[in-house]
Design a protein around this nucleic acid. Structure first.
Lengths: 202, 202
DNA sequence: CACCTATGTTAACGGTGATAACATTAAGTT
DNA sequence: AACTTAATGTTATCACCGTTAACATAGGTG
């Protein structure tokens, strides 16, 4: 874990701790980690981390910033070769969201679940060019092309599509989606919902 | 907390502990409670609870059974004076789900979030006549009346409507729904989604 | 060099879930 | 009624948790 010349002072503890925490979260598949586990992984005593993070939640908040980069990566890759504002584009965005939720289970939970500081979660979600904004723009484009009379509804429509994707992702994340319909498939459901929402009112 | 004649043996510790845990969860608005807090509330030593629950998760699982009764209560009341299988009926069911999620925040989280034993959560959701089954029957009725050609899709449609309601409820639960659209209203969104899903394909 | 600040260390505190060893009572058998 | 046993309480204890305090070491600046 990237240590300086000195055996006493680490040199880059803050960043290394964040990365170590992220690795740990990913490896155990849960963000229910321990400060001591992180410290041990970096090769440092537990209280050393309190020089760089006011408390455990501050460390998790720092990891959460990485997760937003991660989901943007999924989204960017998903829409790389797709014409923006098409139905296929919206499918790709939804699909990326679902895949992130299952691939990076613990990060997805860390991003949204209600532990610790609520406000930092909201701030982080808004801070950068997030997945939501990409979705919003894609929907705006789609509506302008195919349903110009509903173009003013793009924000509401984006919120609704996000909610639907999030519900499907969350239920799958918590292994609940197939509780009642054992054949339920997240991607199929979302494609159905996408079409229903976009053609509504016609 | 209902004690027997003996000052030593409690008499009904198991049930009292479940109720005390539920009260505690409701009062602090989180299911992140402590065995000791529950024990103190019942007036008993902490390890006494381990005679009745194998571990903390077992106690929470017992509380979760109560929460399913609670949400069924919301649903039953919501549909009391409404003709089944109508659009108004579906609105009422969705509305009840959203209200439960905000009114009984901690219970809602306890019901669905991924802590401890996954299988007990699935089992509990399936065990009784749950909210989902009510929703499923209502949709079946609605489709038979208004869209008989889609009657075979009732299970998929119910899963989709549940997912959507769940997504909206979860985002609101985690105070994320208005992150991007500050005017977002859960009930309005769900009504829009309900109509979109039901009329899709026409 | 002297000093200050940043950043490590070990020691300790109260609280946690959980177990072990022991105490008390209720219930059943004779 | 007396003895046994199982159920269900108790206190003592464990390892671990997040966190703070007190102390140690290094690097940078006068």
């Amino acid at each position: 874990m990237n240590q300086s010349i000195s055996p006493y002072h680490h040199g880059d503890l803050r960043n290394c701790a964040i990365i170590a925490a992220a690795e740990l979260i990913e490896s155990i598949g849960s963000y229910d980690i321990t400060i001591s586990q992180v410290a041990k992984r970096v090769g440092v005593s537990t209280p050393a981390l309190y020089r760089h993070f006011t408390d455990k939640d501050a460390l998790l908040t720092a990891v959460r910033e990485l997760t937003h980069l991660g989901i943007m990566d999924y989204i960017t890759r998903a829409q790389a070769d797709i014409e923006h504002g098409t139905l296929a584009h919206l499918d790709a965005l939804g699909s990326a969201y679902l895949r992130y939720a299952t691939d990076k289970k613990a990060f997805f939970g860390l991003m949204w679940e209600d532990h610790g500081d609520t406000e930092s979660r909201r701030a982080e979600a808004r801070a950068k060019r997030t997945g939501f904004q990409v979705l919003h723009e894609a929907i705006e484009l789609y509506l302008q092309r195919h349903k110009p009379e509903s173009a003013g509804e793009s924000l509401k429509t984006a919120t609704l599509m996000w909610s639907t994707a999030h519900g499907i992702a969350t239920l799958q994340h918590n292994r609940m989606l197939d509780t009642f319909d054992e054949d339920a498939d997240a991607h199929t459901l979302l494609r159905t919902a996408t079409r229903a929402i976009l053609q509504s009112g016609e």
